[in-house]
């Protein structure tokens, strides 16, 4: 065993199987993610990417298998995990403000009955500044654009001061500027030793944005460093051979032929 393997993984998924009404969505998945990486979870629609994240967060109950965060069950690690759900998962017409939503990230640390105060709001403002949304604190959330909504969700996760981030399609429906800003933010998080796991759809940008990748299609196809496992063969297995958009960047050998 090498020294690297003895490091406790940030995320360890063992034999994870999840089923909705007898239909398996994830089957016997094993993933080990070392701390300090930026990992993409890729796979076709219905491959169970969101389910994988939700199972890691304890939001769906697995039929079999277990999930360890830094070597401990997820229930014991709530303070260390932040979550950025899909933007469309909430009602943006809810009567609340940007600052209020971001402050929600502190609710876990606050615990029962304690109300957020000046310290929590100040921390929320700092995180809004990190995502370039300072000045929008008092804005009603229905008045935000898609990219702004995404950044508010990111700020809410940052406020949690976690060291493991789960993000469900953080680039979905945002413009190029916002996408670059988010990528820079994710890379800052990695640089400060945090681990980030993103469901991602754009195969073209995987090698550029991420250094670790898991290819999922109900079963795990491969998981590891991008330059080792993000190969045409694995992609073909993941997407069932139909890969007309197989990226040239991801496939230098094929291009040379």
């Amino acid at each position: 065993m090498t020294a690297e393997n003895r490091v406790i993984p940030a995320l360890q998924v063992e034999d994870l199987t999840v089923a909705y009404r007898d239909k398996p969505v994830l089957w016997d998945v094993d993933v080990s993610v070392p701390p300090g990486v930026l990992m993409a979870v890729v796979g076709p629609n219905g491959a169970g990417k969101t389910t994988l994240i939700k199972a890691c967060l304890g939001l769906v109950r697995p039929a079999a298998g277990r999930v360890l965060i830094h070597g401990r069950p997820v229930e014991a690690q709530r303070r260390n995990i932040a979550y950025v759900p899909q933007r469309g998962s909430v009602d943006w017409d809810f009567p609340t403000t940007v600052l209020d939503v971001v402050t929600m990230g502190r609710y876990g640390a606050l615990g029962w009955f304690r109300r957020p105060g000046a310290a929590e709001r100040e921390r929320a403002r700092q995180c809004l500044e990190m995502v370039g949304m300072l000045g929008y604190e008092r804005r009603q959330i229905s008045q935000l654009s898609g990219g702004q909504q995404q950044r508010v969700f990111l700020a809410r996760a940052l406020v949690q001061d976690a060291d493991l981030f789960f993000m469900d399609e953080p680039f979905q429906g945002v413009d190029a500027t916002t996408e670059r800003a988010i990528v820079a933010l994710l890379q800052d998080l990695r640089a400060s030793g945090r681990t980030v796991i993103c469901v991602h759809h754009d195969l073209q940008t995987v090698p550029e944005y991420f250094d670790w990748v898991s290819l999922v299609n109900v079963r795990l196809v491969a998981s590891g460093p991008v330059n080792e496992v993000f190969t045409p063969n694995h992609l073909r297995t993941t997407y069932g051979g139909r890969l007309p958009f197989l990226s040239q960047r991801a496939d230098p050998k094929e291009r040379a032929r």
Binding site: L59, Y83, L110
Partner: peptide
């Protein structure tokens, strides 16, 4: 009123509430 913050979170984003450990 006592559970105001928790109920607000529950109404807005129940999955997130679960992630925070509620």
């Amino acid at each position: 009123v006592a559970f105001w913050k928790e109920f607000k979170l529950l109404a807005f984003d129940p999955d997130y509430a679960a992630c925070l450990g509620y």
